[in-house]
Design a protein around this nucleic acid. Sequence first.
DNA 1: AATGAATGAGGATTCATTCAT
DNA 2: AATGAATGAATCCTCATTCAT
Lengths: 186, 186, 186, 186
Amino acid sequence: MSGPAARRRARRHDPGRRDRLIDAALAVIAERGVAGTTHREIARAADVPLGSMTYHFSSLEEVLAEAFTRHADAVARVFDERLSTARDRDEAAEAVVTLVSDSLLGSPADLVLSVELYVAAARNPALRAVTQAWMARSRRALERHFDPTTARELDALIEGLVLHSALSTDPMTPEQIRHAVLRYLR
Amino acid sequence: MSGPAARRRARRHDPGRRDRLIDAALAVIAERGVAGTTHREIARAADVPLGSMTYHFSSLEEVLAEAFTRHADAVARVFDERLSTARDRDEAAEAVVTLVSDSLLGSPADLVLSVELYVAAARNPALRAVTQAWMARSRRALERHFDPTTARELDALIEGLVLHSALSTDPMTPEQIRHAVLRYLR
Amino acid sequence: MSGPAARRRARRHDPGRRDRLIDAALAVIAERGVAGTTHREIARAADVPLGSMTYHFSSLEEVLAEAFTRHADAVARVFDERLSTARDRDEAAEAVVTLVSDSLLGSPADLVLSVELYVAAARNPALRAVTQAWMARSRRALERHFDPTTARELDALIEGLVLHSALSTDPMTPEQIRHAVLRYLR
Amino acid sequence: MSGPAARRRARRHDPGRRDRLIDAALAVIAERGVAGTTHREIARAADVPLGSMTYHFSSLEEVLAEAFTRHADAVARVFDERLSTARDRDEAAEAVVTLVSDSLLGSPADLVLSVELYVAAARNPALRAVTQAWMARSRRALERHFDPTTARELDALIEGLVLHSALSTDPMTPEQIRHAVLRYLR
DNA sequence: AATGAATGAGGATTCATTCAT
DNA sequence: AATGAATGAATCCTCATTCAT
């Protein structure tokens, strides 16, 4: 038997807990999917009592919305940065290739995060706002280098490449990704 | 007071019930998403007693697998047919445009069905087999008219176009779809 | 350790369970008040698993409505019977005295049952229907022997006498009840 | 972004807060019933932080007791005053009529306050003391003009009239109240 | 062959209360 | 003196699945 001190975690003061909870939520979504994301699961992942969840968030929906917002922001930020670094169309094309290839390097669970968001958004207005903002931001980033039509089409192609690779047993190699992107932009 | 016989539908002999249940499942998935698809919901949609579900299927997972298989089959069949009708590359390209455009005409709920499947497949091996088979079949259909690399890339583009339009507030018009496809194939 | 047979109650077949649950609900309301009436408490009182509650009733509100309906019916039936036995005004007056006195014999908790209903009805439309029907029925029973105005006033007096006694540390004796009723009817 | 000072009301010095909390509690009880009266609800109603509740009161029960005491005092004071103004039995009777009629004019929520108290008192000894004191005080006020037996019976009649009207869809008119009271006192 | 009843695990959420600051 | 954060028990309810009939 452990001593009384160890028996119960006495984690009273814990600033930034709300923040950690959002990260934990993302981890759970990635691992278990939105369907498997529950208060309990998130609380467990963050090693926090269940009651803490509803203290910090008024509903599970709110947690999801915040988590996906953070995810979208992070992804979009990288997208923005890479594309803003490119100095011409060719470098922009190469940036796109890198972005897609890199995103395929993460865990497969991570890959599906975006698709999870899409599906969740289909039934949850609060999340739809997140996806819309994200899509718009991506397109704007692309429009630094491409005309609006190209930007939109390219965005769709990117989506398709990621999705296909995410779900396929043999995902595309960076070389194959490059081939597809460059062929479209040729 | 009516006798017990009149109280509830006495649908004893009901061949094809299993079949109707699968269709009902698809309807529920389309309307409520996989997360909202329960034995109860499906039974209600098919106007069938709850016990009937587990009589015909050994688990909910089995229902989902059968439902998605049927969905994928139906979509793939149309895909096959349209592409087999095409007599050359140009007609094949046009067939792809039509397929994507048409799929965007259905109800938004229907559109999400495929995405629901993707997500579900990400965590469910039985479903992954369904998506793999489906992808392979699509690619084979495209390979009637395009080389393997093109077929694969085109398949990804199609996916991206459908997904983007399915989730966007302003989906692409058939003209925009054609533009994207033809540009890639140009 | 008890043998496996005793370890878990294997109470599968149990016709009339719904009925018993309603009775159990009344017992709990009487003992703990509406505020203390929960699914758990009722299930415990009926020695039935928690899940059984929501199988038989779609909400706790439904349980309360059914329970109070049963209570009101039972009380009203006695009221009806006693008053229908009376052959003239004097006997009717005596019947009222007996009814009030008898109702004071039960447990104090039982006494408050009706008041609990009133309060619950104030915030629950479904219950309001129950109280309305009950009040109407009481009044109709009194109108067999008294004019409508007298019936209504007498009904209120009865209510007051019961309530006062229910909440007082020294409830009225039957003799005191008789005195009050006869004085009003004198 | 505004600094932390501006983020939330900084109501440091607030004498009389305890007092306001009791009033807020009464408002909440009237609107939501005792069952719906929580620390949170009261704090919200008083626009006060949650922690303030348990700072000023050691338990919710204490809040309820104080609130009901205040309510009973207010009602009893009016009762006292009106009856002390009456110079003879007839004026006293008229005062009773007015008191009952007036109480029916208030908001229906207010009316239920007393009934809520009765019910709560049935299970809560601390509250029972409140009702006892209230009843005793009412009776004493009536005994200025009526003999003890009459006072007690009249008190019960008053209770019944108020309760009936409070819960009925067609409450009695002042004329009907007068008729009932005068008939009893005739 | 078919189904209504039953059940236990788990879902989100609310809340009184405690406590560190 | 005052309060935001924290927590664990309890709330209602849903559900996949099992089983007796």
